[in-house]
Design a protein around this nucleic acid. Sequence first.
DNA 1: CGGTCACTTGATCGTCTTCAATACCAGTGG
DNA 2: CCACTGGTATTGAAGACGATCAAGTGACCG
Lengths: 245, 245
Amino acid sequence: MTVALARPIVIQPHGAASPCAGCDARRASVCQAIPDADLARLASAAVSAVAQPGTTFIDEGYPANGFFNITSGTVRLFKMLPDGRRQILGFAGTGHFLGLGTPENYGLSAEAIDTVRYCWFPKARMRALLDDFPLMERRLLEVASSELIAAQEQMLLLGRKSARERVASFMLAQSRRGSACQHPSPRFTLLMNRADIADYLGLTIETVSRTLTKLQAEGLIEISHTSAVAIRNQTGLENLAEGRA
Amino acid sequence: MTVALARPIVIQPHGAASPCAGCDARRASVCQAIPDADLARLASAAVSAVAQPGTTFIDEGYPANGFFNITSGTVRLFKMLPDGRRQILGFAGTGHFLGLGTPENYGLSAEAIDTVRYCWFPKARMRALLDDFPLMERRLLEVASSELIAAQEQMLLLGRKSARERVASFMLAQSRRGSACQHPSPRFTLLMNRADIADYLGLTIETVSRTLTKLQAEGLIEISHTSAVAIRNQTGLENLAEGRA
DNA sequence: CGGTCACTTGATCGTCTTCAATACCAGTGG
DNA sequence: CCACTGGTATTGAAGACGATCAAGTGACCG
C-alpha cells in the first residue's frame, strides 16, 4: 500500500540572506507572526523544496520529522485503507501549514497535484522558533482551530448529506477558495480531477460526474472543459448544500 | 430548529479559595499547565456549573462567549442540518476542553448525556490566562492537534468505511476510552444510546442494531443489557475495523 | 397493568456503487 | 492529415448496501 518515498528535490537551504522577505505565501501563512526584523532567523530555520506533480512528500505512518509550509501549488491530503480505499481530507494551497497534530508519525499523506513549492522546517528548529516567537504558536493555534472547524463541517457532509448536497457544498466551497473573506467568485477553475473530488466527498467518480451533469442540466452550475466552473444560481446551490431543498 | 437555550445552573463562582486544587479533571485537562502556586488565579477565572441530562449548553451558531472544561459526565457534540439530520462529532468526558476553533459563533452544539459538571471560562478571562501562562496555550495547541487527528480518522470512517467497519472501529475506540495509552480494556459500558452511535457513525439506529447483533453472532463482541460490551475477538475486530477483512 | 421508551427484527425501497461501454482530448507518429 | 494511444470524463444497466417503514420485544415505572 505504501508508495515508495519520493524525496523532494531541495532547491536552496535558506541562508542568512532572506528569501522569506519576498515570499508570496508569507502574508497568508503562519510566517506572518515573525516580525520583519527577524526574517533572517525564520529563513535559516527552513529549507525550500519542490515536489513534482504526483509526488508524495508526506507519508502516513512515517516518522514526523518536520513541518511544511506551502508556498505555491496545490496538495491533496489523504488517508488510505489497506485495500486502497482513499479518503481525501483536504486540499492545501499557498500559505497552508502542514504537519499539525503530528506527535510521532504523520497521520496523513500529502501528494503534489501540480508543481508544489514548499518550505520545510525540521522539528527541532520549529520548536526553537516557537519558543522564541510565541506569537507564532498563537497563530498555529488559530490555524489548528480553523482546520478543526473545517473538519467538523466535513464530518457533517460525509455523515449526513446526500450526493447532491455534497457536490453542491463542494462547489460553493471551491468558489469561496482564495477569496478569503471577500465575495465568492462565481467563476473558478477546479484544481483537482474527478477522482480527487470523489475521494474528498466520499463518493465514486461516476456519482460525482452524474451529479455535476444533473446540476448543470438544472441550471445551478455550468461546466466547460471539465474544470472551468460557473455558479449560475448561487442561492439555489446554497439551499441544496444545506439540505433546504 | 434551534432548541431553546437551557441556561446552566451556576453552582459556585470560583473564589479566592481553590477548588481547582482538588479537581479530578485537572490532571487530564489543559489546567495541568497551570502550576500549583497559581491555582487561585486559575480558579478565579472560571465559574463551575452543572448541566442536567439532555440539556444543551452550547448552541451552534450562537455567539461564542467562553470556553468549557468538563469535570465530570459525558457530553455529545454535534451539528445539525435544518431538516433535523444530526451528525455527532464526538463525545467529551472528564478533562475535555470545549470551545476551540470558535472565532465568533460556536460551530457546534453540546448536550449533556448524563449529569455534567464543567468549568466555564469567559472569553476575555481565558485570553488573559493564556497571556500569563504560555504553557497553557501550548497545551491548547496539543489538544487542538490531537482533536484534528481524531477528526481526520473519523473522516476516513465516514467517507470510506462500510457499516460493519464503522461499528467495529467504534467499539474498539470505546474500549480504548479512558485507558489513555494503556492496554484497552476488553469490557466496558456504552455511555450513549443507539441513536447517538448511529448519528456518530453516519448510520441509522436500525443499521447499528443489526450490525451489533451480527458482530455478536459472529463471536467478535458480546453485549448484555444493551450497553455492557465485551470484546471477544480483539484482532478479528481490528482487522474488520481497518478493512482487512 | 397499561404506558412509555429504547432497542430489535423484518420486509421493502431507493440511492449510490459496480461493472462496462463510450466519448473526449491531447499528444505522437505514420 | 489522420489513425493510434493513453488518460480522463461521461453515460448506461444491473446490483448491493443501507435507509425507510412497520411491527414486535423487553425493561422500567407510575
